[in-house]
């Protein structure tokens, strides 16, 4: 029932993108997102498309998988595009009742559509090729300068990795409890809104109880292994930059530079 959610999922494969240091991928994703809002004109979007296509090919993740992730945000995408289409003021091309479509509106809608689609595919490319643990390690390492101002960087990354680790477990648990209650005649699919919420009680109460029990067990298991926070804690697989990571950084810098150049000099019809 809940197997269809693919956003944030890891897809194991043996590719250069999988082997890359997670810090590079994290920074790369941020650079890519920034560049999407930076570039202008046909040339800019062509560059973003080529870059994304090259990464998709390098990742060895089936394209079908990324499109699946798109399905979840399809609705948001359509709404954003419609708002942009009808609410951007400018030279009116077509109007009906209170709805006006302007030339600027069409351009804006297309631009937002491309940006959002690329943004989601770009960031799911990171999560598809990076395990949640690698990702939190990368964040801890990248944000560690903030420790100077007493930000609980280690605690936050630990909480994130635990939370990510428990998503599949809780999903499975939800599935199990749901089935058990359906076997007792529960109905999760019909009825009006209020009734549906009320029908969730037999699912939510056991789920919360099991989540609290798991949290308790985990805290005990961590304490039993002498966990005492981030102070002086070393990592089993410390992150080290390798040759390919430096190459990736150079390529990334080149891409960003190209985007900035296009931002300043670019134009065109988009």
């Amino acid at each position: 029932m809940l197997r269809e959610i693919t956003i944030g999922q890891y897809y194991p494969a043996d590719s250069i993108l999988h082997k890359l240091d997670p810090r590079v991928k994290f920074l790369g994703t941020i650079v890519y997102i920034v560049s999407l809002f930076l570039v202008k004109g046909f040339a800019g979007y062509a560059l973003a498309t080529v870059w994304l296509a090259a990464l998709i090919i390098l990742s060895k993740v089936p394209f079908k998988f990324m499109v699946k992730g798109m399905r979840t945000i399809f609705f948001v995408l359509i709404i954003t595009m419609l708002f942009n289409l009808f609410l951007t003021p400018g030279e009116t091309i077509w109007s009906f009742w209170i709805l006006k479509v302007s030339k600027e509106g069409i351009i804006q809608a297309v631009r937002m559509g491309i940006r959002l689609t690329y943004l989601v595919i770009g960031s799911s490319l990171m999560t598809l090729t990076t395990t949640p643990n690698q990702l939190t390690d990368a964040m801890e390492s990248l944000f560690s300068p903030l420790k100077v101002v007493h930000a609980p960087v280690h605690e936050i990354s630990m909480m994130m990795s635990i939370a990510l680790r428990f998503i599949p477990i809780l999903m499975e648990e939800t599935d199990k409890i749901m089935k058990a209650q359906i076997a007792r005649g529960a109905d999760f699919e019909s009825g009006n809104f209020i009734n549906r919420i009320r029908n969730m009680v037999p699912l939510l109460v056991p789920l919360f109880i099991s989540a609290f029990r798991r949290a308790n067990d985990l805290a005990l298991a961590m304490e039993a292994r002498c966990y005492h926070g981030g102070e002086g804690r070393t990592q089993m697989k410390p992150l080290h930059y390798a040759g390919r990571d430096y190459v990736a950084f150079v390529l990334l810098a080149a891409f960003l530079a190209a985007c900035i150049v296009l931002h300043i000099f670019g134009g065109g019809w988009i």
């Binding site: 409890i177 089935k179 058990a180 209650q181 007792r184 037999p202």
Partner: peptide, 29 residues
């Protein structure tokens, strides 16, 4: 729905599905 009344299924560790405030109400679900 009628089939599931006729064929009762008790899952593994079924105690994890209890949710009511007292035993009798839970069984009455």
């Amino acid at each position: 729905q009628a089939l599931r009344s006729g064929v009762g299924l008790v899952f593994q560790y079924p105690e994890n599905q209890l949710f009511e405030t007292d035993v009798l109400t839970d069984v009455m679900f």
